[in-house]
Design a binder for these strands. Structure first.
Lengths: 361, 361
DNA sequence: AAAAACTAGTAATGCGCATTATCTTTGACA
DNA sequence: TGTCAAAGATAATGCGCATTACTAGTTTTT
């Protein structure tokens, strides 16, 4: 009864209804069908013919093939989003989430649909995974450690790409929307200096990335400006390395303000900050009374009570939005200067309630 | 200097490198390039030629076009996921999330990549949005209120589709993985009956959907079986309609157990249950002492303390997994009976600590 | 030495659609 | 009555790739 042979990719002959089928049913040419079903409505197809085509299409259950359409036109009004992660960042506590929100909102506002690419760089499909992005007209990328060669290949192939996060390693070709971590961290350090702090410890993630070294640069830069009356160190520490003994040592050495790298893209929970507050508790120290705390980013995990860490706000949503806007500009072939294609957004300072005047030595 | 005219879809002549370009550079035919770059490695292309092609491809920065590939082969190893929602359900509190997890895990395990389709049924792109799913080889759908005509059109066009959630309105053609809400709700009601409850109120969502009426059916069925000694009503109430006066009325009428519809797909927060517990507090009633509470689903919002609502567990992750497995079977043209293509999974009972023996009248 | 069997590669075709150039009618106007 | 233009529709082509059928050269077989 049923010709199951046709269900197979090999054996199928014309499983799905094509424009040609509609054309035959309506007694017209395939071109006419194409014009009526997807061309601008004012084209030269008579009313009766048009109706016949529409009827036939409805009766046969014609559904356009987006692949063929895309191949023919070169566009499909689809924007890609890829994170280079095996699974999609669907958790609220994941710091990617606000980017996604911004991208989603702006894409919708601009009339583009979104394609979220999952797919780990697993051994099997790694090489093809990145090329797959070309299913969309252009793509927004997020991720601390992208496979740079693949990204370069895509870029050189002329595929419109916008990175969320600064990425100068591919030169001026790669467009991005970043956050000015360096400036924000310097400003944060300056504010602590204004509060009287003269001895700092900046705790960094072990995992170095642009977002991480930018922050370090900002800290160092501030330290240099205040080199006449302030000192600071910037150790890279894993959460478990932050022991009471270590912290005690800092304080004994005169440290009055600790800054913790935070809000980094792949760190789901800022464990370092959690550990540090825990250690301070063990040492019987309260902040901001005994010591000032700050973090180079916004917090995602819910804090008990009303603790708001001093630091700055990474405008993630806005970065997502602007990334989409930039991508669309690229898609439309708009001429953009390098400054327009590589932007750093400012991070608003957050005073919080974890830092205060330096304890007198 | 730069030929910017070529950047435009109209003016561009050969922006990106094609197999034909590689072929010319290597002095071979396009077919040879195709065979080497994507054909099985044991095909009849000599080693030197093969190397020349590989070199040329690398030098020119060739990147395969997934669209053309897909058009030619009919497959691209991509599975779609669509929720009919304007934005993607990326929040943990959203009850779609576990489905996504299951789908993601299983797709990865089977070597398929995932394409998450965003795109609201907004007036502009609504009609084309659904067809866009055909970018993938097949698609998993989730959603309480799908645009049934579009889904039918897709289905009739032969596109492999698996719905998460029961959907009999399209007959036997639409495959699905559902949860046996009816049976689970009946069992839950039976358990309460076993505890001595004889007078029930089942609070339902105002928004009717299959997942909702299935639960109601289960409740009614249990009531019918116990019609000799038990009674119950099943009002559909919005959260704000649940007032102290109303609840007081139920209790005065002898109600000892309240079941609240929960875990429905689009309800981000089970507001009805929250409202109800709040109202009970206002009335000075404690559960399970004064009254038993249960819900027809699992909870997502974090509860204060260790309250675990009586009810049952919807195996969402497992549903996601099985949906993917089923979809892949369909893709491969496997012959499946209706029973295999339309499955209801059992929901494990959850005793919780919000229900107990009925208060004596 | 002729036929059979490989080997290495190419030409041709089609996937489903959009688009352009082209052809055929018909109507308007002088 | 003849000419030109507009309207209505079609044939042809290409998007980039995979795939099949086929050609030509080289061994192997008997």
């Amino acid at each position: 009864m049923n010709d199951k042979a046709n269900a197979q990719p090999g054996g199928r002959k014309h499983q799905r209804v094509r424009q040609a089928d509609v054309a035959r049913a309506a007694g017209v040419s395939q071109a006419a069908v194409s014009l009526v079903l997807s061309g601008s409505p004012d084209l030269s197809i008579g009313a009766s013919t048009r109706q016949a085509i529409l009827d036939a299409a409805r009766d046969l259950g014609y559904v356009p093939d987006p692949i063929a359409r895309r191949l023919a036109t070169g566009r499909n009004n689809l924007l890609g989003l890829h994170t280079f992660a095996p699974e999609f960042p669907v958790s609220l506590s994941n710091s990617y989430y606000p980017y996604l929100e911004g991208v989603e909102v702006e894409a919708a506002a601009q009339g583009y649909d979104l394609l979220l690419f999952t797919g780990a760089p697993n051994t099997a499909s790694r090489e093809t995974a990145v090329h797959r992005l070309r299913l969309a007209d252009g793509c927004v990328l997020v991720g601390r450690h992208p496979p740079i060669d693949d990204v370069r290949a895509l870029l050189e192939s002329g595929f419109p790409l916008v990175y969320i996060g600064r990425h100068d390693d591919l030169g001026e070709e790669l467009s991005y929307i970043g956050a000015d971590y360096s400036r924000a961290t310097a400003a944060l350090t300056d504010r602590l200096h204004d509060l009287g702090h003269r001895n700092f410890v900046y705790v960094q993630e072990v995992d170095t990335a642009v977002a991480s070294t930018d922050r370090e640069d900002g800290f160092e830069e501030s330290m240099r400006r205040h080199s006449s009356d302030a000192v600071g160190t910037a150790p890279r520490l894993a959460a478990e390395q932050i022991t009471p003994a270590l912290v005690k040592g800092w304080i004994d050495d005169g440290c009055t303000a600790i800054i913790v790298e935070g809000g980094t893209e792949t760190v789901d929970s800022p464990a370092s900050l959690d550990t540090l507050t825990h250690v301070l508790g063990e040492l019987g120290l309260e902040y901001p009374r005994d010591i000032s705390l700050a973090t180079t980013g916004s917090e995602f995990t819910q804090r008990s009570g009303s603790v708001v860490f001093a630091g700055f706000d990474v405008p993630r949503r806005e970065m997502g939005r602007q990334a989409v806007q930039l991508l669309i500009d690229l898609l439309r072939g708009k001429e953009l200067s390098v400054a327009e294609r590589q932007r750093l957004l400012e991070c608003a300072p957050v005073d919080g309630n974890t830092s205060g005047p330096a304890r007198r030595a």
